[in-house]
Amino acid sequence: MLAYIGLGSNLNNPKKQIKDALIALNTEADVKVVGLSSLYQSPPIDNTNQPDYINAVCEVHTHLTALELLFVCQNIETAQHRVREKKWGARTIDLDIITYGVQVIASKQLIVPHPEMMNRAFVLVPLAEIEPDFKVPVLGHIQELIEKVDTSTLIKL
């Protein structure tokens, strides 16, 4: 299965946090990172007083189910000392499954495509960098989604 995972960090050396998460993903027996966007810098979503985020999107091939992949992502977050104090709070690492093949999933644990991806330039732009003709299940063509978001604060590193 082909899946895209968004990575983000704004604490404890964010570039290293993303690198470490990618290494951890790639060492999983049933996950292979096959594509990676550039890194992008963006301000916090809620404009709170916290450092800017560093974000990227990776493409993985996996034999895991979507829920199994979610658990792998959560285990990596835990290993990298992710603390969930408040929504959109500062974090060492965040791993979000953006898409999982063409599947549409709406469960208590996981919603795919990611329910906020169409509002996030820091997800859409890196995803389009990897796959410029991508059609997001239910939501449409990636380029059309990008046209609907503000990309002015997104900085490619």
Rank of each mutant, 00 (worst) to 15 (best):
T78P: 02
T153P: 03
Q50H: 11
T62W: 09
V60Q: 01
S42W: 09
Q143V: 01
V123M: 00
N13C: 04
P51D: 02
A29K: 15
F134L: 15
L124H: 04
T153V: 14
K87E: 07
T27P: 05
I105K: 08
I93N: 12
P115L: 11
R120G: 04
I142S: 01
N10V: 09
K87G: 06
M118L: 11
S152A: 08
T62F: 12
M118Y: 13
R91S: 08
E129M: 14
S152E: 08
L64E: 01
D94Q: 05
G140A: 09
E131T: 12
K32I: 13
S152W: 01
D52G: 03
I98Y: 13
G140I: 14
D52I: 05
Q109I: 11
P115W: 07
C58K: 10
L145E: 03
D133H: 13
D46A: 02
N49D: 14
C73S: 05
I18S: 06
P51C: 04
N26Y: 05
M117A: 07
A56H: 07
I23M: 06
I142M: 09
I146S: 06
Q80D: 06
I54N: 00
P43V: 12
K86I: 15
I105W: 13
L157A: 00
G140T: 14
P44L: 13
S9T: 12
Q103K: 01
